[in-house]
Design a protein around this nucleic acid. Sequence first.
DNA 1: TTTCATTTGTGAACATTTTAACAAACTTGA
DNA 2: TCAAGTTTGTTAAAATGTTCACAAATGAAA
Lengths: 190, 190
Amino acid sequence: MKISRSGVFHVSSAVLGRITNVKPANIRKDLSYVGEYGKPGYGYEIDKLLAVIEKIIGINKLQRVIVVGVGNIGEALLSYQDWPARGFEIAGAFDKDKRKMGRVINGIEVRGNSEVPSFVKKEGIEIAILATPTEITQLKVNELAQDGMRGFYVFSPIVINVPVGCYVENIDMISPLEFLVYRLKNKISK
Amino acid sequence: MKISRSGVFHVSSAVLGRITNVKPANIRKDLSYVGEYGKPGYGYEIDKLLAVIEKIIGINKLQRVIVVGVGNIGEALLSYQDWPARGFEIAGAFDKDKRKMGRVINGIEVRGNSEVPSFVKKEGIEIAILATPTEITQLKVNELAQDGMRGFYVFSPIVINVPVGCYVENIDMISPLEFLVYRLKNKISK
DNA sequence: TTTCATTTGTGAACATTTTAACAAACTTGA
DNA sequence: TCAAGTTTGTTAAAATGTTCACAAATGAAA
Ligand SMILES: NC(=O)c1ccc[n+]([C@@H]2O[C@H](COP(=O)([O-])OP(=O)(O)OC[C@H]3O[C@@H](n4cnc5c(N)ncnc54)[C@H](O)[C@@H]3O)[C@@H](O)[C@H]2O)c1
Ligand SMILES: NC(=O)c1ccc[n+]([C@@H]2O[C@H](COP(=O)([O-])OP(=O)(O)OC[C@H]3O[C@@H](n4cnc5c(N)ncnc54)[C@H](O)[C@@H]3O)[C@@H](O)[C@H]2O)c1
């Protein structure tokens, strides 16, 4: 449910709790850690709350990233329409495969691996999304760290190591499905 | 690091901890909750440990699922090569778009929406992966629940409600990227 | 204004998770 | 067989996270 832009300008922790399946007290406590944004008897101003949260996360200004590896996942990412709404822009895409280089997907040109260093330097980009084959992902991260990248969002289901000053987030798209199987089997409502 | 099938047949909590960045005591405690599989002075037999875990999760036998919505993500899922290694098989795929129906991707035929009820009944499938536009995902889940589906793996970044006896797992592919931005900004090593 | 109904922020109670520490159990090699 | 060296499973302590409950603050209505 989109509660913003629908004639409602404020929201209580009770309502937020109903929407998100989180206990209201928990929501209030969490928000209290980052400041006091609510008014007693009224709730939280939605626009203000969103702005504050986006500022805290750091997605209040557009984040430009590159995609490395334009295979199944990489292509889906390039074709994704909601990047701007989420505060991101895919500034460039790279693949080692000659058959993919030169292709333009959703307005984004796929470049060769060798262009990475100059591209990210010129564009001032620090975050890379990796959708490369699992076997080479760690090597690729090492390489990109050398090129000055500092944030890595990795789709390979492995533990990735990075130098100090660099940060990595992993996503394993299959694990939640395994967990679903487990819950189904054991009737675990969560 | 793949530690199985490499001449090593057992592994200690210390080694598992190094690989996964988890404290050894934590690994031992967690494993102790599901039984006693380790030998003092020796560690855990890798094959046995894997078998036990797969059995507990329920992925020791092949899990057959359907994919609903063959767009960017849906197509990437159909093309994914590692489903068998992970214990899954995509038994069928469905889309409402006539242009996608009939297409065969990675050996899987894309069928029309209307075929879902008979297909899942005949094939005895209970789990659906939804890669549909965010706006219609909840509706689609309701529909599939009517058709007898009991597990839903949802790619839309929204809270999904299901009837009792049904289970849902969500994956928001963008949130981890937002968190990466936050960590980068605040130098949070995790 | 004043009253009534809401809703926040938080201190304290309660619950869960993580960590450290170590006796007991096992392997290995002599 | 025995002694030395590992590593487990578990207990208890410490740390972290969640929930309750309520005074204080605010908005809305009269
Ligand atoms: N496809 C899925 O649905 C899916 C599901 C779960 C996990 N994953 C994981 O996501 C990752 C990517 O999967 P995929 O299915 O998109 O793989 P893919 O094989 O379709 O794509 C990999 C791409 O990386 C490119 N590449 C290879 N080496 C490169 C290099 N050195 N530099 C730049 N590009 C290079 C390849 O040319 C290819 O285009 C894998 O780790 C996979 O396990 C994918
Ligand atoms: N593409 C990405 O990289 C990405 C990233 C993050 C989140 N997501 C989320 O994943 C979901 C799917 O995204 P996408 O990019 O694959 O979307 P998409 O628009 O490319 O694909 C959606 C598919 O669903 C089909 N569809 C529509 N209505 C249907 C119906 N009633 N029954 C069956 N099929 C129907 C469409 O024909 C289309 O093929 C969305 O919720 C999106 O927010 C996607």
